[in-house]
Design a protein around this nucleic acid. Structure first.
Lengths: 333, 333
DNA sequence: TACTCGCACTAGAGCGCGCTAGTAGAGCGC
DNA sequence: GCGCTCTACTAGCGCGCTCTAGTGCGAGTA
């Protein structure tokens, strides 16, 4: 920077002004300085910038590298962040890199706020994080913590799916649980409520699982084993999310079960995956872009006014009917 | 930091030493300082650290948020980077955020090296980047640029797949091209060569496409339209990558084409997707973890010795036979 | 005793910027 | 001529840390 200033015959301060696009420099000086900078190959150093400025205007996003829905969310964040003048820094959780590590990485890079996609941490930890910095949880309600949250009205989505399945004649509807995954508790609760409301308590069944393909595959195996043991298959399965639904489909189809003739499968998220199934996955759609925009906005607004109370955005989900669902099979007499 | 030093009754320098885990402090002072820091809630500021240190020990990784194979790669980089004492910063390309933007973000955050997953930029740009900093291209050979590269022996993989298909009796084997995608040119070339080698020039056909599901879907539609126009379907399709293969499968299966009875499909990458298909996708496996480790190692080694000439790691791919491939259908007399 | 050595620790410069407070000079009205 | 404002620019401190070149001190050696 000093080199640029020297070569352009101005002070460092003026170079700074020009690179920050601030008023206080004449047009011709601006052009000259920029030209010189280009020649020298100077580009401002962000680290120093942040340090001097005190603010980084950077949002940290923690996501899970294999969670396809997160990709949709991340993609939705960039434009909104840019619009508001913020940068986005990503940090992935992965095998051997837990949420704590991922978040620490973000914070130590001076992110002013942290947006957590489907956080799995304990409420107390999230609360602590929310006190240390501005935090937003996407996909999981954390009402007890000092954290904004953005999620869909899980109950509503599940209810739509359940009503739809019941309407199609399904009675034995099983739910694969998302474990500690975001939104799982609400989905589970809504499933239970819907079964009761439709007078199907007797068929109510929640199979423990999580938000991965593996979980769907295992459930598939379990159901097949039960069938071979003489128990009938359920006629419909409400999976914890799309990935789980995909795993289930794989396991079942491989074993000769025909979807949706023998059994209907409904996912959750409407991630890119849903379109991928040859017949398309029936699923409950969460609007990734809208969620992403809300999350960014929450973070920025809290940054601008630290006193703001944590808020919650609840978006409406929507059932998207594709090929994996259909009328319940005729019951054998 | 000054607060910690004051409260612990030592100098800032000593606190620094302790937080850097360097020799020069007694065990008891160490413990005391760390305890005080914890009480105050002090954590060292990375930006200032980088600035003062001159080195960031940070590797920047540019990836595409929806490219599933990239997720596998990213996951493989973290452990290796950590082992070598480097941090990893991610920057995604996405709609409206091109490679230039993504890389600028990395550089301005003081990444010492940039690892590009499947870069699409012009060779000249990559070369320029390679001169400005240490750069590694993963999945694409860039022999003309000052850039390390890590990729699989594309030709070998395609050859294996082709030999396998021909052995199964396939003659009309079509290739969906990956466009400007990484490795596409080599795969295309190898496909052509294999067709010739097997005396199948007459059936040689490259359909333009890219590395997305959409491209597979479109090709599927095209082939179906041709079939309806009286032309026979190919008996096997070699897709540009797994995503493309998935799209193709979706389009075909929807239209009643049975895979692999009527037509075999082979993908490329062996990303997580491949396991997802109910019947499993036959594909050419690239070892993501190995590629990731090579890429990180290349970057670090070049950082440690700037004079090192750019190198190239060529890994052996491996055909993984799953459910989407089988014997060629009987030709109608 | 005088010295060297090694260990625990410190002073203070400097990393590359942003920012506040300020100056020099041009243009204006009176 | 004076004071005034406005624009274009500059000096220099400080952000939070690392790092070099030290200081002080007790133990070991001549």
């Amino acid at each position: 920077m000093a080199d640029v200033a020297a070569k352009a015959g101005v002070s460092r301060a003026l170079v700074s002004i020009i690179f920050r696009d601030q008023p206080g420099a004449s047009q011709e000086t601006r052009e000259r300085v920029l030209r010189v900078a280009d020649e020298i190959g100077y580009r401002p150093d962000n680290a120093a910038r942040l340090l001097a400025r005190g603010r980084s205007r950077t949002l940290g996003v923690m996501f899970t590298v294999h969670q396809t829905f997160h990709a949709d969310l991340v993609e939705g964040m960039y434009p909104e962040a840019e619009r508001l003048g913020y940068e986005v820094l990503l940090s992935a959780t992965a095998q051997g890199r837990g949420e704590v590590k991922a978040v620490e990485a973000l914070l130590s890079h001076r992110c002013e706020a942290v947006i957590l996609l489907g956080p799995d941490s304990a409420v107390a930890d999230l609360d602590a994080l929310g006190h240390r910095t501005v935090a937003v949880s996407v996909g999981r309600r954390v009402p007890q913590a000092r954290v904004d949250s953005v999620h869909t009205a899980e109950g509503k989505g599940i209810r739509q799916a359940m009503d739809y399945l019941v309407e199609l004649g399904h009675r034995r509807i099983v739910h694969i649980d998302g474990g500690r995954g975001p939104g799982s508790a609400e989905r589970r609760r809504a499933y239970r409520a819907a079964m009761r409301r439709h007078g199907l308590e007797s068929g109510l069944r929640v199979i423990p699982g999580d938000h991965t393909e593996q979980s769907g595959i295992e459930t598939g195996r379990l159901l097949l084993a039960e069938r071979d043991g003489g128990q009938p298959l359920p006629t419909a399965v409400l999976a914890g999310n799309d990935r789980c639904a995909m795993g289930l489909l794989m396991a079942l189809t491989r074993a000769g079960v025909e979807v949706p003739r023998d059994l209907s499968v409904v996912g959750y998220d409407d991630s890119h995956l849903s379109h991928l199934m040859p017949i398309g996955l029936t699923t409950v759609r969460q609007d990734a872009v809208l969620m992403a925009e809300h999350a960014v906005r929450f973070a920025v607004e809290r940054l601008e006014d630290r006193e703001l109370e944590p808020r919650e955005a609840v978006l409406d989900p929507k059932l998207v009917v594709r090929g994996t669902s259909g009328p319940a099979p005729e019951e054998p007499a």
